[in-house]
Design a protein around this nucleic acid. Sequence first.
DNA 1: ACCTGAACACCGTTCAAGT
DNA 2: ACCTGAACACCGTTCAAGT
Lengths: 234, 234
Amino acid sequence: MARPGPRRTLSPDQLLDAAQELLAERGAGGVSIRGIAARVGVAPNAVYTYFPDKAAVLGALVDGVLGRVDQTRFLDPEMPWRERVIALAVALRDELLADPGIVALMGGVPLHGPNAMAVGETLLEVLSAGGLDAEDAARASYLLTVYVLGAVSLEVAELEQPGPPPPEADRVAARAVGFAMVPVDRYPRSAAVAATMARYITRDQFEWGLERVLDGLAPETASSPRDVAKAGRK
Amino acid sequence: MARPGPRRTLSPDQLLDAAQELLAERGAGGVSIRGIAARVGVAPNAVYTYFPDKAAVLGALVDGVLGRVDQTRFLDPEMPWRERVIALAVALRDELLADPGIVALMGGVPLHGPNAMAVGETLLEVLSAGGLDAEDAARASYLLTVYVLGAVSLEVAELEQPGPPPPEADRVAARAVGFAMVPVDRYPRSAAVAATMARYITRDQFEWGLERVLDGLAPETASSPRDVAKAGRK
DNA sequence: ACCTGAACACCGTTCAAGT
DNA sequence: ACCTGAACACCGTTCAAGT
């Protein structure tokens, strides 16, 4: 048997597009080799002509999302370096949160693709422009990466539906319901701050945390940190 | 047919112990309902008598690991609050890193189990002892959680073998090999700091980052931050 | 309530074969 | 080189049945 079907119709990008669609529609667990193959109208094992295994597909998928962040705009020397770091981190957060399924995938694959490397390179360049020496820049870059990754992970963990997340206001409301059920007798302090917690897991809170991290990294760039902290409030 | 076999031999804890073993031996992907059932000598669907679905098993597994951290010892009022925060965060890191598979699982399940709540409660209590008001404590607690989760995720991502990670020195050596292959022409700054990067993803670096975060959160507790930063070096 | 066998609708991956 | 059908060794979950 084995009818060959049309040749040369496939490409890695076509497979990755299909994977992307599955990720958006069904979440991280919905991305399967068989699903990708079905979507492009091909036998499951045809995928193995382009990728050695599933991990390679997921790795390319993750790196592709990181490639959607245009890094060149953060290299503008007119912009203060601290603002450029913040802009880059926020752009990353927004891109990852737009495709929440990708975050679960990031935990499983090492971030060594070309686009991940490019982001790291940009970050090191900005930090270097800020006057940090090589070692300081390396440590700062690691700390900032930790922050972005951790913040996005926690924010995504609260979403149960796959696909692009609902507006921030709706997410706050949904969280409030869950937090309201914290038993006051067992966890008094958690219950006391539940309403606050529900309210502040937002982009503003992400920026607030980022400012604190930068204050710790480069105290001399902090413009009266406590003022900034209080200013973010209301 | 349906020979009943002995009754009442099973318990949720027995199933979780089996799950724990699978996690340690085969990693996050090796934890399966069928595998758990086989290990305790029972039909796969017997598991559904104790847990509604696989997600519930994984959730209980994650919360169980968090329960291994004894929180009471961080409530000692003799200890400065900043040191207590650091001790709690380090204890959490050590526990999660001892069972690296758990970290991948944490990305998929919301952290609302009793032990997760207890850790959050302890953290809020320590921050409150540090003089932070409810809102400050809530924000700080969130930022610290983000840091611990992000740091552990990045550290675990570099391990490919399941089971307890090798000694820190061996992990540093293994990373150095990978980092040495960064192409200098394409990513000059990344290549320049590769050796540093390989060296510093350690417990010391975790504490260094934690100190920076705390400096940003409570600048008044920082004892000349730049000195601390430089002191961590050599 | 607790456990069973059997089945359903899936997986990732390999292999020999066809063009 | 690129794709196929078929198979292997797995999954999570449901259902009717037995005690």
